[in-house]
């Protein structure tokens, strides 16, 4: 019997993989990919909670759709930023991006 916990475990696993990607990659696009994985993990959780705990409602799914919308917007803007940075520095690696420093 597949329970809610199974789905949550998949979501958690996916989230941690995405986190590792976001934290450990040099390439800005790879970092964005990691973030997408994390968002998907969240969506799995939302939909799973919706399915198991309140199947007569669709709130979780609505939430997930909003997340997808925002993620799409984020990806579009993020990639545009990456392009812009790349055009200035001819590189999409971000580990030498230290413009936030003092």
């Amino acid at each position: 019997m597949i329970t809610l916990n199974h789905y949550l475990a998949v979501g958690g696993l996916l989230f941690c993989i995405g986190l590792f990607g976001a934290l450990a990659k040099r390439n800005a696009i790879a970092v964005l990919m990691g973030i997408e994985l994390m968002l998907n993990a969240v969506n799995i959780n939302l939909v799973a909670f919706n399915h198991f705990l309140a199947p007569d409602q669709v709130t979780g799914q609505i939430f997930a759709i909003f997340v997808i919308v925002v993620a799409a917007a984020e990806v579009a803007v993020g990639l545009a930023l990456v392009l812009n940075i790349y055009r200035r520095r001819l590189d999409s690696n971000i580990d030498d991006l230290d413009w936030l420093k003092w």
């Binding site: 934290l23 450990a24 413009w99 420093k101």
Partner: peptide, 17 residues
């Protein structure tokens, strides 16, 4: 101490997490 402020986003994210 200011060396802690690398200015690198990922380092900050690492600290946050």
């Amino acid at each position: 101490l200011r060396l802690l402020q690398t200015g690198n986003l990922q380092t900050y994210a690492l600290v946050i997490f």
